[in-house]
């Protein structure tokens, strides 16, 4: 099957940046700032009152070249409630469920003038949803030969009052968007999708933070091996790993289990961005692209773990 390409990408973060001590004092964190600092976090980003996940989505999509339109939008949210931006007060006042089905992807289609785009929503892949969106876009482009471009979006804002720490990771409100194209987009680094693989373990849907952390170290190596096997590759074929922004020790451990040089793990946005939910891969991949470290022929492994529990990985190859 012909594989699509990741083209332009962009992201946005909650407009208010907090140092760890500030958020700890405000009750947004569970662990101590010192512990979180030792884990690699330094600050995070939170939407101010009035800003929602859709605003984040627009913050990312507005930076993409969308004048030529797209054939489809795949809109992912980690939190299912971010999959509707309707007026909850209106629902409560009227009992009319249509207020619970005001879909952000539809808004995006209209607001960006993407009138012919077919709309898909993903809401049940946890933090791995952006990789799920890439997979779906790849499959759509393969099955719809006349289609050229799919817009993938991931946007999440934690609700007011939420704690911004999950499984000992500091969370940022954030969104990411990218174009997946049937052919390399002119003027962009060619990143061909090679393989995507997902593991879901619904038996762990109520996993505690500690169970989520514990299973990370068994399921992520399994995920990586199975993903690479699907691509006919081994860990030796991977030049870079672009993971989520989790505890800085986590991928040292996984790299040790997989025999991957940790120097090849690109997690450089961790201190300043924190775990921006499903947007992490795009954020770290953007950082890697900006670094000028990439060379044609290199292969990059994008990996994510998320609630559900879900684990998902994508291999991309630098083609130009």
């Amino acid at each position: 099957m012909a594989r699509a390409f990741i083209g332009d990408m962009a992201y946005s973060l909650g407009a208010t940046r907090y140092e760890l001590a500030e958020s700890a004092a405000a009750g947004r964190l569970c662990s101590s700032p010192d512990d979180l600092l030792a884990a690699g976090f330094a600050r995070h980003h939170v939407c101010p009152p009035g800003d929602g996940s859709y605003d984040l989505a627009r913050g990312a999509t507005d930076r993409l070249p969308l004048n030529d339109g797209v054939d489809a939008i795949v809109y992912n949210t980690c939190l299912p409630q971010n999959g509707s931006i309707g007026d909850l007060a209106a629902w409560e006042a009227t009992g009319d469920v249509k207020h619970l089905m005001e879909f952000p992807a539809g808004h995006l289609q209209t607001d960006l003038g993407l009138d012919t785009a077919v709309v898909f929503g993903l809401t049940q892949q946890g933090c791995t949803g952006m990789l799920g969106a890439l997979r779906l876009a790849d499959a759509l482009l393969a099955s719809e030969p006349e289609w050229e471009r799919v817009l993938c979006v991931s946007a999440d804002r934690f609700p007011p009052g939420a704690r911004y720490e999950q499984s000992y990771n500091v969370i940022s409100d954030g969104a990411a968007a990218c174009l997946v194209t049937a052919r390399p987009a002119p003027g962009t680094r060619g990143l061909r999708l090679v393989a995507t693989h997902q593991i879901t373990n619904g038996g762990l849907h109520t996993a505690s933070d500690d169970e989520s952390v514990g299973t990370f170290f068994s399921y992520v190596p399994l995920l990586v091996r199975q993903t690479l096997a699907r691509a006919g590759l081994t860990t030796a074929d991977i030049d870079w790993v672009v993971p989520q922004n989790t505890n800085r020790h986590a991928w040292r451990i996984v790299a040790g289990l997989l025999g991957i040089d940790h120097e090849r793990v690109w997690q450089r946005t961790l201190p300043d961005v924190a775990h921006a939910i499903s947007a992490d891969n795009i954020i770290n991949l953007s950082s890697l692209l900006e670094s000028a470290e990439l060379r044609p022929g290199q292969r990059i492994l994008l990996a994510m773990a998320g609630h559900g529990l879900n684990w998902q990985a994508t291999v991309v190859e630098v083609t130009a």
């Binding site: 569970c30 662990s31 101590s32 512990d35 979180l36 030792a38 884990a39 000992y168 373990n201 038996g203 762990l204 933070d209 500690d210 952390v213 299973t215 170290f217 068994s218 399921y219 190596p221 399994l222 505890n247 020790h249 986590a250 040292r252 451990i253 040790g256 289990l257």
Partner: peptide, 26 residues
């Protein structure tokens, strides 16, 4: 569906302990 544990080397286990040291609430 918990997986059987993988064996890790000493260095990797030390990273695990380092991570644990920072998770005082865990």
């Amino acid at each position: 569906r918990l997986l059987r544990p993988e064996f890790c080397d000493d260095a990797t286990f030390r990273h695990l302990l380092a991570a644990a040291d920072g998770l005082r609430g865990s």
